[in-house]
Amino acid sequence: MIAWTPDLAVGIEEIDAQHQELFRRAERFVSSLGQTSRQEVGILLSYLRLYCVTHFGAEESWMREVEYPGYAQHKAEHDGFVASLMALSDEHEKRGGPGLQATRVSTFVERWLQDHVTSTDVAFARFVLSRSE
């Protein structure tokens, strides 16, 4: 199960709230695999991807604003995840294809979100918080 917990808080209310929504959407998508129609899975994947683009855009704008030195690497991680979601969409929409493998996809999404938030996003948050002290 993909769930945001207080342990994932980065200490910036706006980002933590967005992460909570991101984890909710990821959980809805992953839970749909093998449980709902292919159409519903596709809708939830698009719903997740759209929020990723929105959230990542907000973070990246903030990074540019504060001249965050880790911007390029952070953005590359965002871009890679969105590209992976696009590849999942392509795989899912392939006519006659097997669809998405629930275990593989859920493991990937959960690991990526956990790793990104606990390392990359925490580093950005620390930078922002250190500048406001």
Score class of each variant (00 low, 15 high):
132 S>V: 07
71 Y>H: 15
119 S>L: 02
91 E>I: 03
118 T>A: 00
112 W>Q: 02
130 S>D: 14
113 L>T: 02
100 L>Q: 10
34 G>P: 02
101 Q>H: 13
64 R>L: 15
127 F>I: 01
44 L>Y: 03
103 T>I: 03
45 L>I: 06
88 L>F: 10
128 V>S: 07
103 T>W: 05
95 R>A: 12
109 V>T: 02
72 A>V: 15
87 A>F: 12
16 D>G: 13
17 A>M: 13
129 L>I: 12
69 P>L: 14
92 H>D: 07
44 L>N: 04
84 S>C: 09
129 L>T: 10
124 F>M: 08
40 E>P: 09
65 E>F: 08
121 D>Q: 03
12 I>E: 00
28 R>E: 10
126 R>N: 08
113 L>V: 01
107 T>I: 00
86 M>A: 13
85 L>G: 12
133 E>M: 08
127 F>A: 01
128 V>D: 05
96 G>Y: 06
112 W>E: 02
120 T>Q: 05
70 G>T: 15
53 V>M: 12
73 Q>M: 15
39 Q>G: 02
133 E>K: 13
14 E>N: 06
82 V>H: 13
25 R>D: 10
2 I>G: 00
70 G>A: 13
34 G>T: 06
58 A>P: 06
121 D>E: 11
7 D>T: 01
72 A>G: 13
28 R>F: 05
103 T>L: 05
9 A>G: 04
11 G>C: 05
57 G>R: 10
69 P>V: 11
71 Y>Q: 13
86 M>R: 14
48 L>V: 04
18 Q>T: 11
115 D>C: 00
43 I>E: 11
105 V>Q: 03
32 S>Q: 07
100 L>W: 09
27 E>V: 01
2 I>D: 01
109 V>R: 02
106 S>G: 01
47 Y>G: 02
79 D>T: 15
7 D>W: 00
50 L>C: 06
33 L>F: 06
12 I>Y: 02
130 S>Y: 06
116 H>F: 00
50 L>P: 00
105 V>K: 02
101 Q>E: 09
126 R>F: 04
42 G>V: 04
132 S>I: 10
103 T>C: 00
34 G>F: 03
3 A>K: 07
67 E>N: 11
18 Q>S: 12
97 G>C: 07
58 A>T: 09
132 S>C: 03
75 K>W: 15
26 A>V: 09
